[in-house]
Design a binder for these strands. Structure first.
Lengths: 89, 89
DNA sequence: GCAATTTATGGCATATATGCTATAACAAAA
DNA sequence: TTTTGTTATAGCATATATGCCATAAATTGC
């Protein structure tokens, strides 16, 4: 059986942004005194996913970030308070 | 054949946040003079996806939001400049 | 060192994001 | 009404996000 490959589509994983987001989350979580586990529990997310985000292994959805922001009691924008380079595509 | 259903997992779609995000994106896009199509093209995303986000039909990933922010030349936090209610789970 | 806590990884299942393509719906002109 | 520009929908394919479960690795305090 041949592989039924159709066409290649790109799925970009924005490493720079995700790295900055991971850093920001770690900072905020520490400041607010949450462990990955307590944050996961209260935000109703899994520990796995929190760990993935902080280790830049996943590209979370905005809903996930909303839950985290609510739990940390910070505006969502605070989680994205960093500067992206104007990187070229 | 029985359905091999395992266990139910929740996948929350944060309608409130997504509604606010859609509104914010529409605003910023208009301010900056982009159509959905030009934004999609320059951000290297599909028109479909921009439309889905603006009509609250999808829960985008943060990488997608990073691309949009870069194209609109705004800090990512600007796209999330709105207030979530402290909604209970 | 040991135990406890916390963080990181791994595999697997399922839901969904996104691409791609086409089309429809809509609005504003002309 | 037709054209033109724009936004919304739809179906399908594939990549990935996330849950769940287990375990490993790292950290901290004793």
């Amino acid at each position: 059986m041949k592989k039924p490959k159709k066409t290649a589509r790109k799925f970009v994983f924005d490493e720079e942004g995700l790295r900055l987001l991971a850093k920001r989350l770690k900072e905020l979580r520490a400041e607010k005194g949450f462990t990955q586990e307590t944050l996961a529990y209260e935000a109703d997310i899994t520990l796995s996913q929190i760990a993935r985000i902080e280790t830049v292994k996943a590209n979370p959805t905005v809903s996930t970030m909303f839950k985290i922001a609510r739990t940390l009691s910070v505006p969502v924008s605070t989680l994205f308070d960093f500067k992206l380079s104007n990187k070229l595509k």
